[in-house]
Simulated assay, not measured.
Amino acid sequence: MTDSESRDTDPAAPASAEPPKRKYPVGAVVLLAIAAAALWGSSRMTWVTVSSTDGLTEPRTDKLNGGVWFGALTPLALVLLAAIAAVLATRGWLRRMVGVLIGLVAAVTAVPAVALLTRSGATAARAATLAELPGRATVTEVVTSPFPAVLSLVGALAAFAAGVLLARMPQDAARLSGKYDNPVFRRAAATEQVARQRTDEANTAPGQLSERVLWDALDAGTDPTEEAPPPTDTPDHDQGKPGSRGV
């Protein structure tokens, strides 16, 4: 059995100098950014075009964009942007809770798009109300634009996928802020690893430090190339050598 295998199986063996790699939620962050961009773009596009006449003036045509047809569309896009910061600042069960909330937001976002695409949401009465038509006006035509609704639905699906990824994120997933990214704590950890490395070399079980750890140790004022001091205790078997004084 090699030295590395014995250290892996022996619980009393010194810990590895290189910390285990942690998983960052890159996929979820990218999906959230795509979802926020899709919702924002959809809110600026025309969802419904309503034509009306009141018998007194010229026929009127109003174009209702996504922000008017579904008033919460723009705020939900901003919520998803804020969720990116929340994801990067949390970890563990708190990050999974953020994922659940993102999934709920995605479900709410998909409702008006599905209603419009199935023709159940584009009613003349709703169009007249949102266009602020006078009471004597009569709606003559309501035309829906499917592409903005589809874009909104794509954003909702991307947000839901991000929520699922976050809800299933392992416990040891990393966050981009915390003591491991603080230079003070990182240098202290590097100093501790260098000290452990010297102990390992004194016990004839050398390890290997990464270049990042070496630079952090130098920044902290610790020289990684300095050898460990020799042991001060004299082994008992030296008493039997010639020249040793017996009891």
Rank of each mutant, 00 (worst) to 15 (best):
V108P: 01
G55Y: 01
W215K: 15
A127F: 05
L209W: 01
L153N: 02
A38S: 14
S6E: 12
P134S: 13
A159R: 06
A189T: 08
A217T: 03
P242A: 14
A85F: 11
L39R: 00
A28Y: 02
L56Q: 14
T234R: 15
L157H: 03
L176T: 10
V194A: 03
F160N: 02
N182A: 09
T2K: 14
T118Q: 06
A217W: 03
P183N: 13
Q239P: 00
E132P: 03
G92I: 04
L80V: 01
A107L: 12
A89Y: 02
R126Q: 15
K63C: 06
R186L: 14
G71I: 12
A35E: 03
A137I: 07
A162V: 04
R91G: 02
A106C: 09
G71M: 11
S43Q: 07
R119A: 03
A188W: 06
G41C: 07
T199D: 13
R7P: 00
F160G: 15
G178Q: 11
G243A: 12
L64T: 01
T2D: 10
V194F: 08
V164K: 03
A228N: 11
E201G: 06
P231F: 12
A158E: 02
W93S: 14
A86C: 08
R168L: 11
L133G: 10
I84R: 06
W47A: 02
A13D: 10
P231M: 13
W69K: 02
L80K: 02
V111K: 11
A190P: 03
P146H: 01
L166D: 00
M169Y: 00
V29K: 02
I102Y: 00
D238W: 13
R212F: 08
L56R: 14
W215V: 14
T138G: 07
